[in-house]
Amino acid sequence: MLAYLLRRLALIVPTLFFVSVIIFGLQQLLPGDPALAMAGEERDPQVIAFIRHKYHLDQPLPVRYGLWVAGVLHGDLGESIRINRPVLDLILEKLPVTAELAGLAMCFALLIGIPAGVLSAVKNGTVWDYGANVFALWGLSTPNFWLGFLMILLFSVQLGLLPASGFVSPFEDLRQNLGAMIMPAFVLGNAIAAVMMRHTRSAMLQVMSTDYIRTARAKGLVERIVVLKHGLRNALVPVVTLGALEFGQLLSGAVLTEQVFTIPGFGKLIVDAVFNRDYAVVQGVVLFTATAYIVLNLLADIAYFLVNPRLRA
């Protein structure tokens, strides 16, 4: 276990190196001059020259990469050209917001997806199964932004129950925070709930048809124990992997939801940065997301060990 973990950890270094090269390289392929994009409508040549110089845009590519990596290794992700603030500050400011959104969305996804998947597998072929499948199809095919708009129109404009936007930190006011987060978290979690449901269902169907389930039933266990202890526990292995992968997706995929509900998270940060050619911010956010993704995958692998005793051998 320890050797395995160490091996996995050592792999992170070259992976991140490649990620950093790709991020940096791809970004340079973005058409449009960042200094020009930043200089504003007036495009004053002196200002453009100043921006180029200040942010090393006048240096050759390898030098710029070197400067960036050197900074990153010292914990300095650079400075946003647009608002002159350190990228790390921006990330630390936005990350908790998106993490909360993703966490709540995951709660919705798990709370809806897994029970629905179990129900649909156990009641295979009944109206429950069809109902859950229709829900999954709906969840997968409803675009986030559209569902978001509809929910705003219903719960904010018509009923006036929930705020249409306006993020409040949970440390400032938990009630307002949850009020502002319920809708976006549901919208974001909805599609993942559908994926979760489908996977739980197929895993459960497979497990429920195995010999040990028949044995469990034969020895007279109540159905609840059979399903939850013997069935679900074994079916959860692929679902956990999926959960970790989807969580990584959530971090970067919250873009549209954050736009619709104007939540100041990662998604908005990166979209704005791409359009403004704010290179340092794009690089910082992508590097951070990539790292998060790698770590989450590692955690998922560790979770395998915990869920499935056979792997521990």
């Binding site: 904010s156 006036g160 306006g166």
Partner: peptide, 18 residues
Amino acid sequence: YRIIPDSTVRLANLRSGQ
């Protein structure tokens, strides 16, 4: 000043009183 780039969302926020 609240930043809401989409004009439809901006209007929805005005209508809902935010």
